[in-house]
Simulated scan of single mutants.
Amino acid sequence: MNNKKTILIIEDNIDIREGTTEILELTGRYEVITAENGRVGVDLATRHIPDLILCDIMMPELDGYGVLFMLSKIESTAKIPFIFLTAKAERADMRKAMEMGADDYLTKPFDDVELMNAIEVRLKKHEQLSADSGEEYDLNLSEEEQVLLLQELLANSRVKTVKKKQSIFEKDDSPTYVYYVKSGQVRSFKLYKDGRELSTGIYIEGNYFGYASVLLNENYEDYAEAVESSEVILIPKDAFLELLWKKPAIASKFIKLLSVDLREKEEQLLGFAYHSVRKRVANALISVAEKNGININEVNACTIDITRDGIASIAGTANETVSRMLSDFKEEKLISKEKGKIYINSIKNLRDVKQ
């Protein structure tokens, strides 16, 4: 019995068309039919009724938007999972594709893993919807159950080792993954035309990042790089969204994380508006301690590992100003230096630093 799924590839670039076909056929799980333009693609889709369609946007005869529009009006093809293949990374184009009813998009060049993940997730989701089994999704999950589900998601995702200062994603990149710090430390930041950096987040072992752009279906608004040699787990966007769709309790967890991120950014902006540089540097040191998992309500002294550049990025000031503030704090016995790291002698006193 042939249990292979049929994939229709509509792509005018012969190299991409043949390369994608080869990848899919090598798995032994798919039969592939191909079309060199949109008009041929619509004809093949209506005659063969494939299980999934991969379609380029910019094509002669009929573009990808036209293909999707025409197939959505035909009862037999309206519900076929539809994934755009596009070299166009502009936000407006991606939004237009999703608003028209596309299930997903892959930005060229994409790798084999991205392609297979996108296809498998969409086929699985389509089967679940078609079965209409009346499955009840858990509205309430214990913390332990949430942890187990997220651990399973992580276990099925790829681990990437990143070196110190190595980029993980850049501003305006299309969100393909949600990231999880398995070990090490990662920071996100904005970069201004004059060369200044503004830190937007510090992530340590056990932290997720990059999920806001995935949830909003928008390109990244900042940069992310490893602060030190780190291991980062790359959770495919589709697998992440499917879990949230099936388990509202997990979705609620990430909504809360988004709320915390928003509150921290609001506090940061208020600090820029109303706090002196001295106060902002003190708050930056405390923030780093918190981000490193130190309970500042229970511990009054701790060691943190951060560069002057990092502090300047969080505090929104110049390196020279940070050096001067750290010297002042050292003279006031608020901090000391230990093997290149900063030892906070009293979190309480640092928090009470006056304007």
Rank of each mutant, 00 (worst) to 15 (best):
A45K: 02
K237D: 04
I57Y: 01
S287C: 09
S229Q: 14
E136D: 11
L24W: 00
D238T: 09
K4A: 07
I311R: 07
R263S: 14
G101C: 08
P60H: 07
M325W: 01
F69D: 11
Y211S: 06
T21S: 14
Q128A: 14
G101Y: 04
R39L: 12
E90S: 13
A273G: 05
E152P: 01
S130W: 04
S346M: 13
S157V: 01
D222N: 05
L148Q: 09
E228S: 15
N345P: 10
F272D: 10
T107S: 03
V260C: 06
N283P: 02
S336I: 09
I202C: 04
E290N: 06
L129M: 07
D222L: 01
L8K: 00
P50I: 08
C55H: 01
E152R: 12
G271S: 11
I168C: 05
S327P: 01
D51N: 07
I233M: 06
L241R: 04
A312N: 14
I314R: 02
F329I: 09
G38V: 09
T107W: 00
D261T: 07
I233Q: 00
V186D: 00
D194T: 12
Y211V: 01
E135C: 13
S167Q: 10
S276Q: 03
E31H: 15
F254V: 03
G201V: 04
F240V: 02
